[in-house]
């Protein structure tokens, strides 16, 4: 699904991402972990062609993401508030996203109904602009907007960071379900090791731009990661 070759990105002489080769297959659920500055967000942005890479290629379904736009048709992503339009109400934003992906308003309404629990009554019909929502609620809007695009790839950068515990559980269940169905490839980054090991079947551990561990999740993964992070200086 996604293939990365010889990827390199440096800022002011410091290498922030350096990935000689990475293959992500259809239906995989990837968890991306690493301390601040490890290059997780930069990697996301490069895959989404938001920043220029110094060298290498990112292929999505075998086509270079820098040269074509076709990957945008099936890639849903939410990295930060920069993906939201802060002066729209959540409803307007969902309709806007729908209009980009040729989903009608009626269909959007139907889809939104499925997220009633997830929204917990805090998003729809509140008569607020997105900019007046709390960070956690903004995150909910972003994640749902991303899921509504009928994507084949989902990319979320630290979706668990600002949301309340109940929503964390619901989001985890949603992601697990996606992973179990095996149709959608997901890449999720998080600082919460419990969450990623719970949700993702494959963990990529980044340190200073390198992927230093690439492991299939099993019973020992959490322990392995915890021991890595506890000895880090």
């Amino acid at each position: 699904m996604i293939e990365i070759k010889d990827l390199k990105k440096t800022y002011n002489g410091i290498t922030v991402v350096d990935i000689p080769s990475l293959q992500i297959n259809k239906g995989e659920s990837i968890g991306l972990v690493g301390n601040n500055g490890a290059g997780k967000t930069t990697l996301f942005r490069i895959i989404l062609d938001l920043i220029r890479k110094d060298s290498g290629v990112v292929l999505s379904k075998d086509s270079n993401v820098s040269d074509t736009d076709t990957w945008k048709d099936y890639t849903g992503s939410y990295l930060d508030e920069g993906f939201l339009i802060e002066y729209l109400t959540p409803e307007e934003y969902f309709y806007y996203i729908g209009s980009l992906y040729q989903v009608s308003r009626a269909d959007i309404d139907v889809k939104l109904e499925a997220f009633t629990d997830f929204f917990n009554g805090e998003i729809l019909g509140k008569k607020k602009y997105i900019r007046d929502l709390s960070k956690g609620n903004q995150c909910k809007v972003g994640v749902v907007a991303c899921l509504m695009q009928n994507p084949e790839i989902i990319m979320l950068d630290e979706p668990f960071a600002n949301i309340d515990p109940s929503t964390q559980f619901r989001l985890k269940n949603m992601l697990k379900q996606v992973a179990a169905e095996g149709q959608i490839t997901s890449i999720v980054s998080s600082h919460d090791l419990n969450h990623v090991t719970d949700v993702c079947k494959r963990i990529l551990l980044m340190e200073k731009g390198l992927i230093i561990k690439d492991i299939q999740t099993d019973g020992n993964t959490l322990e392995e990661l915890e021991s890595y992070f506890s000895v880090m200086k």
């Binding site: 062609d49 736009d69 993906f83 339009i85």
Partner: peptide, 13 residues
């Protein structure tokens, strides 16, 4: 500017 990343990553020609 504040939502330019969204414009780039979404399906907008």
């Amino acid at each position: 500017a504040s939502h330019f990343d969204g414009i780039m990553a979404h399906k907008i020609k």
